[in-house]
Design a protein around this nucleic acid. Structure first.
Lengths: 109, 109
DNA sequence: TTTACATGTAATTTTTTTCTTACGCAATAT
DNA sequence: ATATTGCGTAAGAAAAAAATTACATGTAAA
């Protein structure tokens, strides 16, 4: 995966209100587990899991198994120390996205 | 519009390969008009217009009417000098998104 | 005048993403 | 034992985003 693809993946991961909230929550709380996050956010656990997966695929959060307050094993997430600088220059630098410049005929538009 | 909403709008605007390409192109070329951009990107003009509108709504590009090489009036776009720093800290700072914490009952999940 | 190229927009389809619901399994506490 | 709380996953509905297509207008050049 090149730089442009990675940047895109990170941007897509962060472009949702719930996922921004997750990052903020994990920044304040060090580590939280899935069910807990789902409750706090007011969404279902499967949905929370999907959001977390998206963030994890982009490398913005990481997961580990641990023990919750109540003794049950839980799936904890923490935020990674990413730093993404977005300016015209940094975007221009990463270069083209593969397959973005697909062959396509112009029409009467 | 608060900081969190603005950040989200910018993230959503940048989370698409074509729109990243547009920003890169406008960074290199100072200003380009819609039809020209559409041809270069290999997409239809209405679609290019939609992408540009999304970028413009986020304040990442700006438009102005001008004259193209061929004498025809054209709708030029240029990139603005935005600078968006994305890290756990900057995201945690912007605060909560309105209505993100909607009331919702837990179910058997 | 006809061709070419620029504009705008609306309606519709296609595709992707988001979200819900429902199932099953494991472990702890009552 | 039974309730509670954690986990995972898969199927399908709903919503949002992306993309196509088609129409209409204005102007410069051949």
């Amino acid at each position: 995966m090149n730089d442009a693809e990675k940047m895109l993946l990170q941007l897509q991961a962060l472009s949702h209100p719930v996922r921004l909230w997750i990052v903020a929550a994990l920044t304040r709380e060090r580590a939280l587990y899935v069910s807990h996050l789902a409750r706090e956010a007011g969404i279902s656990r499967p949905l929370m899991k999907m959001h977390l997966r998206k963030l994890e695929n982009a490398g913005l959060v990481a997961s580990a198994t641990g023990q919750a307050d109540n003794g049950k094993m839980a799936n904890f997430y923490r935020v990674t120390s990413f730093n993404l600088a977005l300016s015209p220059e940094t975007i221009a630098q990463v270069g083209p996205l593969p397959e973005t410049l697909s062959v396509r005929g112009d029409s009467n538009v």
